[in-house]
Structure formats: C-alpha cells, structure tokens
Design a protein around this nucleic acid. Structure first.
Lengths: 194, 194, 194, 194
DNA sequence: AATGAATGAGAGTTCATTCAT
DNA sequence: CATGAATGAACTCTCATTCAT
C-alpha cells in the first residue's frame, strides 16, 4: 500500500466514523454532507471524491458494520456446543454494541423502518447476521440441547432484537450501570427462555 | 361543539393519522409536509393553520400517542395481583402495538436517538409510560410475588423495550404469524424471567 | 346614519388606525392582514368585508390622510398675506405631523420609493398637497413679498420634504424636545431662505 | 488573493449592487431573494452561500454603505476651517447621493422606521455618520465661527436629514435640474441658517 | 487526492384571499 | 355585518451534487 492509498484509506475511515456518529444521533436524512465533512475535518468535495453519494456512503457503512458483526458471530460460535454457543452469541453482540455504540443505535433506528432506499440492502444484511444465530439454534434443536418445539425463525429474530434494544437502552438511559450486569441478566433470561 | 370546531378537529385528526403513517415508514426528516397534506387530503397551508410547525405536529402526536398507551397501562393493571398485572401489561402493550402499528414503529425508531429537538419531550413521555410498569414491579417485589433482588429500573425499561422490538419485528418481518403466538412466547419468557 | 352604518364606520376607523400604525412601524409589505385584524380587534375576514384588498385599504388610507393635510393647508393660508401664509403652512404641517405621527412616518418611508403599485396614486396626492404651497409661494412672488428669482417648483417641494423629515426625525430620535423649539428653528430657517 | 477568493468577492459585490437597487425601488420586504439573484445573475443558492440570510445581506449592505459615507465625510472636513467644513459636508453628501442614488433612497425609506430587525444597527450607523457633522459644528461654535446658541444635536441631525430628502426628491421628481442648482440652493440656505 | 464556490430542485413556512356559516 | 377555517401561490432557506482549480 503506497502513501496515496494509505492517505485515502485514512480519509475514508474518518468519513465512516463521522457519518456513523452523526446518523446515530440524528438519523440519515437529518445528517447533512456538510456535517459529515465538518466532523471528519475534510472539505465537502472530499466526501464526493471518496463516495459516489450520501446514500452510497451509508450503504457501504451498513455493509461494513454488519459484516463485522457477522464475522464476530461466526468466530464466537466456532466449535462450541449449542448452549454455550448461544451464550457466546449474546456476549459477542453486547461486546460489539459496546464497541460500536453509534452503529448499534443507527441499526435500532433504521432496521424496522420500511420504504427507505436502502431497505433491501438492510434486509439482506439482517438476514446474514441472523442466519448465524438461526444455524446455532437449529443445531441445538437437532442435538436435543434445545426444546424440539422451538420456533427457530422467531427465536433467532427475537434474540437479535432483544439484545440490540436492551443494550442500547442501557447505553443511552442507564450508562452508569456496568455491562456485566446487563450481560448477566440477559444470559439468565435467554437460558431460561430456550 | 359548533360546526367550525368540529370541522377543525376533523382536520387535525386526519393530519395526525397521515403524519404517523408516513413518519413510521420514512422517519421524521424524510417525511415532507407536502406528503402529509396530500395523504390527509388538505392543502399544505392547512397543516400550518392547525400546527405551528412540522416539529410541533410531531410533538403533539407523540404526546397524544404515548398518553393513550399510558392510560391503557393504568386501566390494565387496576386491581390485579402482581404477576397477573405483569401479564396484563404485556398483553396491553402488544394489543396497543397491533392497533397503532405505525406509531409503534415510529417510537422504536426515535426512542433511542439522541440530539433531536423533541428528545426532551420523548424522554419525559417514556418515563411516564415506564413508570406504570415500574410501579407494578415494585408492588410485586414488596408483596413477595417477584424476586427480592429484581432491579426494578432495569427490568421495567427492558420489559418495555423488548415488547416493542419483538412486536414490531413480528409485524414487519413475520406478519403471517398470529399475534397470539407472539404473546404466548413473550408471556412465557417474561414469567420465567421475573 | 343608522346603527349598522355607524358600526361599520367604527370598524373601518379601527382598521385605518391599526393599519397606519403598523405600516408606519414596519412598512406595507411587512405588515400582514392578520396583524391589522389583531390590532383592530376584529376577525381577519372583517378586513375583507370592509376593504377590497390590502392594497385598497392602503390606498384609501393614503387618500384620506393626504386629503386631510391638504384641507388643513388650504384653511391655514386662507386670506393671509404671503409671508404669514408661509409661516402658517409650516406650523400647520408640524401640527399635523404631531397629531398623525404614524401617518407622517409612513409618508416619509413611501414617498420617495419607485415601482410600487400605488406609486401613481401617491404622486398625485403629493402634487395635491404641494400645489397649495406652490400657489402660496407664487402669490408671494407676484406680490413682491418673496424674491423674484425664487424657483417655486423646487422651493415648494423642498419645503414639504424638509418639514416632514425634520419633524419625523424629531419625533423619532429626539422626542424629549418641545415642538415649539423645532417650529421656531424651522420658521427661522425658512424665513431667511425665502 | 487567490482565484477563488477573487471569484467570491466578485459575487458578493454583484449581490450588494443588485440588492441595493431593488430594495431602493421596492423596499426590503417586497424584494425577494429570487429578484436579487436574478439581477446579480447568480443562482438563488449562491445568495445563501455568501450571506447567512436576506436580513444579514441587508445589514452588511447598510454597514458598508454608511461606512463609505462616513469615510468621505471625514476626508472632506480634514483641515478645513469651520464654515468651509460645513459647506464641504453638504457637497460631499450630495455628491455621495448622486453616486449612490439607490442607497440614498433606501436610507430615506428605512431610517425613520421603527420596529424592524435591523433598527438597532441602523441607529448606530446613523450616529456614526452624524457624529462627523456634529464634531464639525461643535468646533465651529468653539471657534466663534458659528452662533454660540446653536443646538448642535438638533442641527447636525437636521442637516443630515435635509440633505438626504432634498437630494433624493430632486433625483426622483426633478431629475431634469442640474445638481449644481440644488447644491447652490442648499448651501445658501445652510449658510444663512447657521 | 482534495478543495470549496456555485448550483437548483425541493424543503418548510407565510400570507393575501375566499367562502361557508 | 362579521367570522375564522381553509387554500395555494409565493416566499425564505437548505442541501446533495457538480466542477474548475
């Protein structure tokens, strides 16, 4: 990687971060390209030098963020027996949300919208992340470690949503409490529930 | 109420409904006043004759919607013993979300944002609704029906969020499943959890 | 005049007064029909019941106001010898401006504009008022009481303008000084000048 | 100054000129931003790229214009004995008004309004310009060249107003007469008056 | 690789005017 | 004679996007 490419990657990274934070706070529409450029400390034109459009920047950002989560999900369950794998998923999600709080907020706000340009992209990405959960649950049912009548589709979707909403709620409204407490409570509930 | 007042209230009601639906689908910023007027079948100026601004319309709408939920929560727990009261809250929330799906979607999208004009209003309203849950849980702990070590603040907040996200997820992504299933699963989980 | 007509005249008078004050303060365009109705304590529709349009209200108001001034000019010079007549005109103008301060401000603001709807009306009215001054000066020149080389057209126009600007300046920026002082200064200057 | 800065200053200058002319003709409220952009031959957005708001453009314009007049006043009286200095002020003002006719018209229309956003700015600027006149008169009184009982505050204010109204009246209603005549008449009157 | 002045379509808002009551 | 809810054209202002430098 030569100097130019490195510089460019730097700029792109700064733009990603600026965009995630701002969109988490205000939403996509309310965040202007001027805002993003200002926070990333580049000129407005630079945004368009690096991304085709505001929407493209957002979509790349979604893909990047959820791809990361999916990868971490995959790594977490690798080789674990079903019940431990479920616990690992919960821990991984919480950990991820703590690290990328703004991105999590953004997901929570956009995931259950309809009629947005990037809806299709988002649905696909969601599917991707949830499928790791679903596979884990399916394996558990097959192995007899989880109840045979567990509705895998509903359960994996709910697991994902619950983790997201509980963690973000904690970060936004009760930031004084330790994440371990939240993790413990969630794990307890999940263990009893499945 | 004279003819004029009735006409005006009609108009306001139509505007509420149009705005809720559109904002649920697209978010506040992406929804234009033209859109709202068009769907409510009034002229754009009429929106401004009835509300001071787009933001004011949204705030009145939030106040109205959450006020309704809070009232239903209050009515639901009236005179019930703790564990039944908790179940009643869950049922009420799901019922409410089913009836006012668009409003629920809107809440899910806006509730965990920060830095928006109406944030303060929203935090207050949230407090209002959640306080009914908190009181119910507190009474249950006091009566010995719920675990003595239950963290009421975390639990009520989580209960509210989980209901919201699971129900909306169901409405958006799995509308083919019956609400009773969802209710049953949620009740099971909640019962075990508390 | 029956009860109805009296009531109507009342309303019209109130609207006149409200409009004059507001237009003096803010100008014609910046004054809204809502403002006028509010200050006159009538409903907005009432303005349109009494006047064809905002512009018509303003034109009637100009005609009425300058007509009054012209009449007072005429009455003031009646039968006086030239030099006394000039003094009388100055005194009359000041007196008038003191009584109808808002209207005078309004005149000062609109009289030297160009390209406005009512420009033609205003020019005509101005001519009307100034012609009384011009006739007085002409008679003075003829009688040998005023310099033979006095440019009547320039002088009458200047006399009118100077009186207006000095008086309004006094009312707006030096309201603590007595009108007699202003009158005395003006009379001195005018006497020496002609 | 680089190319970009030069381009931008060009644009700002063109906008100043377009705005002055239009506001002089029609007044501030009746002049639209579209009008201004059209006459300056730039896009509407460019107005807002260069000025925060229509009001801000107007205020900058006022500051710029009266600053210029004040500077010329200062340069004109520099080193002159009192009576000559007064004559120089009159000549300077007339010359200025002839050069910037539209701005003078605008001043005449706005200076004696009340209750406008920029009123405070205008009062301050007026003070600035008039203070040069006042200082000149004060020096004359001190030197014994002007009557000891001259009310400096009233006189300087009147001098400013009279010059403005007479010159603008001449430009608007008697553009056929030469400026020298007007200057001569004004100088005569002023000389006798003080 | 980056910049920032300029653009114009489209957003929120205002307001003179109409009309059913 | 008077009202005030409703209207829509026209306004001020915003912002994603372009492009010459």
């Amino acid at each position: 990687m030569d100097g130019r490419t490195r510089r460019r990657n730097d700029t792109r990274q700064r733009l990603y971060e600026a965009a995630v934070e701002l969109i988490a706070e205000q939403g996509f529409s309310a965040t202007t390209v001027d805002d993003i450029a200002l926070r990333a400390k580049v000129a407005k034109g630079t945004v368009y030098y690096n991304f085709a459009s505001k929407t493209a920047l957002f979509e790349e950002l979604l893909t990047h963020g959820i791809g990361l989560l999916t990868d971490e999900f995959r790594a977490a369950v690798e080789g674990l027996p079903p019940r431990e794998a479920v616990a690992a998923l919960v821990r991984t999600q919480l950990e991820y949300i703590r690290r990328y709080q703004a991105f999590a907020q953004l997901l929570l706000s956009e995931m259950w919208r309809t009629n947005r340009e990037w809806q299709q992209t988002l649905v696909l990405l969601r599917e991707q992340a949830i499928s790791v959960i679903a596979e884990t649950l399916k394996a558990g049912v097959k192995a007899g470690d989880l109840p045979a009548d567990l509705d895998v589709r509903v359960a994996s979707s709910a697991l994902f949503g619950v983790g997201l909403v509980v963690a973000v709620d904690w970060l936004v409204f009760q930031p004084d409490r330790s994440i371990e407490e939240v993790e413990q409570s969630l794990l307890n509930v999940v263990r009893r529930a499945v």
